[in-house]
Design a protein around this nucleic acid. Structure first.
Length: 429
RNA sequence: GUGGACGUGGCGAAGUGGUUAACGCACCGGAUUGUGGCUCCGGCAUACGUGGGUUCGAUCCCCAUCGUUCACCCCA
């Protein structure tokens, strides 16, 4: 075993995989910008209080999953476990509520949670997300959901389930929780151990417990939907009607709960069931209290976040593999001491012209270098040996056509450019 | 945090309480004295995760630990 190993729950993304990462990252940027979202970058660590306040200090994330430490100035610092809190902190701190509203932002980067790793779950993972701050209009909710839907499909995730719900405002939630607790109380002794503790901590989750799901009192427990106030209910109806208008397929799940405290009204989740237990690919919702919680004006917000690692799993489940072959346009083959200097000058000249080129630095034999040229799918092999140097030429070999000609050194670059522009391989801009 | 499975060269994968631990892929070289994708031949390789224990002897049995993985919890 290697003497040094990466920390648990982290991953090395090797070049072949990095190509796919970059592909989905680029797709995300393109789609987000199409909807006029602009990128914001906030620190990877914040003062711990930002997350305690933003995420909610009773959540699992804050209570047991944060990477928190004291820095050398004795400040409590936390590696961000999610993106929204930092973005909202920045919005308030930079007083952007004074400018045009709403703001439409996206972010991307690593997040950190101290969790037990499993399929689709890591300690350092990567999220992309969007936030709209300053608009409560249901059209915004629909736009954000439709954006997520479009993005996921665009990167090849076809088999999706979108669940939506409204978790209401503080008033609706208080009334619902009260009713729920009263309803469940008689069943309490019969519930599983997890639900016993959920009753105190997070009673909403009892409704979709895998064990107690069929308990008569659980099955008949009141849903938040029945307790929405008039405004929240109207808002939810509008959101659904706009989703219909935009032909985004969804199902209403009245028992869906989001894990972070800041959500209000609209909550939604995109699931891909074939990627294991961590089936949520992207999730989000409205957070109308959060800006005020950070000391800003009473402005509403909505957003979502998606995990790249899970997106890649979902892509694989949808046969959306991405293959970027390791390739060059031209491979230069230098044989013998006399060829060393001419060959490095040649690759420099080609690269100046935008040709992707490499050569062998291990003094391999001719056969081996040809093999490498072939493996790298080079259009051309440029052969410089003792003979060529003596004659002032370069052997220009077309690998596919298996033809070769001797070309004067000062004509080589021009000829290579010409051949590449005529082939489908082209020249890298 | 809870529970289960698993840890053999770079990767995949056999195997055994006791001489040099198969094989495949990859990589390198040769057949083709300077020319590729196939084939054949040969070679390379810090391999039994780590630490204890049982044993005359352990890669193999036991325990612990670390790691991977699956599920729960929770979540992207």
């Amino acid at each position: 075993m290697a003497e040094y190993a990466k920390p648990r729950g982290t991953a090395d993304i090797l070049p072949d995989e990095a190509a796919e990462w970059r592909y989905v990252e680029e797709q995300a940027r393109e789609v987000f910008e199409l909807y006029h979202f602009r990128e914001i970058r906030t620190p990877i660590f914040e003062h711990t209080e930002v997350f305690e306040r933003g995420v909610g200090d009773t959540t699992d994330i804050v209570q047991k999953e944060m990477y928190t430490f004291k820095d050398r100035g004795d400040r409590a610092i936390t590696l961000r476990p999610e993106g929204t809190a930092g973005v909202v902190r920045a919005f308030v701190e930079q007083k952007l509520y004074g400018g045009p509203l709403p703001v439409k932002w996206f972010y991307y980067g690593p997040m950190f949670r101290y969790e037990k790793p499993q399929a689709g779950r890591f300690r350092q993972f990567h999220q992309y997300g969007v936030e709209v701050i300053g608009a409560d209009d249901p059209r915004v909710d629909a736009e954000v959901i439709e954006l997520a839907y479009r993005f996921l499909r665009r990167v090849g995730v076809q088999s999706l389930r979108l669940e939506v719900n409204s978790v209401g405002c503080a008033v609706c939630r208080a009334r619902h929780k009260e009713a729920l607790l009263a309803h469940l109380k008689p069943a309490l002794p019969e519930l599983c151990a997890d639900c016993q503790s959920r009753y105190e901590k997070n009673p909403l989750r009892i409704q979709d417990c895998k064990i107690d799901h069929d308990h008569p009192l659980v099955r008949t427990s009141p849903t938040i939907t029945e307790y929405l106030c008039a405004d929240c209910s109207a808002h939810f109806e509008e959101v659904k009607s706009y989703l219909d208008e935009l032909a985004v397929p969804y199902i209403v799940n009245p028992t869906m709960v989001r894990g972070l405290d800041y959500y209000t009204r609209t909550a939604f989740e995109f699931m891909e069931d074939s990627i294991g237990a961590m089936s949520t690919v992207l999730a989000g919702g409205r957070y109308n209290r959060l800006v005020a919680d950070f000391g800003g004006p009473d402005l509403p917000g909505i957003g979502f976040a998606g995990g790249i690692e899970r997106l890649l799993l979902a892509r694989a489940a949808n046969q959306a593999q991405f293959v970027q072959v390791d390739r060059v346009d031209v491979y230069v083959i230098a044989m013998g001491a006399a060829a060393l200097r001419p060959s490095v000058r040649l690759i420099q000249a080609l690269r100046e012209q935008g040709v992707r080129v490499d050569l062998d630095y291990l003094s391999h034999g001719m056969k081996s270098q040809m093999k490498t040229a072939d493996r790298l799918h080079a259009k051309l092999a440029l052969i410089i040996g003792e003979d060529e140097v003596a004659q002032g030429v370069v052997g220009v070999r077309d690998l596919a056509a298996k033809t070769q000609e001797a070309v004067a050194v000062h004509d080589v670059v021009q000829l290579v450019l010409q051949i590449l522009s005529e082939s489908t391989q082209g020249v890298n801009r």
